[in-house]
Amino acid sequence: MPQPLKDARHLVRMAGLFLVAGVGFLVLRSALIPAGFGELGHYRSGALDDNARVEPRFAGRGACAECHDLAPEELAGGAHAAIGCEACHGPLAGHAADPDTEVPPALDTRSLCATCHAAEPAKPGWFPQVVAAEHAGDDACDECHVPHQPGV
């Protein structure tokens, strides 16, 4: 029986090393891949829940109506009817969940109304715009306009 590998034993040892490393890699790999990886695609399926778990800070339009039935009615007929309450009142998820501890901050109409109504050529032509200084002087906007029913 000839020994073909007699003079290549060192190569066999080398190949053996590679084999051990390769198998080691595969074993390690199966142990380290995070749970749920590949279930739905090439990602960890738990990442979906991670993204969904965040708590909203804006309660959404529906939420306010539960307790403030007056305000939406007030809004209903006016030009601001389609605007979400939190566009003006800010994020109020905390308030909606617990109205006693978190009270909505008071609003300064001069700056609030201007964020939308300040005149700017890039705004679409149909949108009512005013140059605050010319239109109202130093007065607050709610001296003449009712925020929930701005039409005069």
Partner: peptide, 16 residues
């Protein structure tokens, strides 16, 4: 480094 091998005969080197 030699992986414990001591074989540097002409045949081994030729294979190398």
């Amino acid at each position: 480094l030699a992986l414990g091998s001591d074989d540097i005969g002409p045949r081994a080197l030729e294979i190398d």
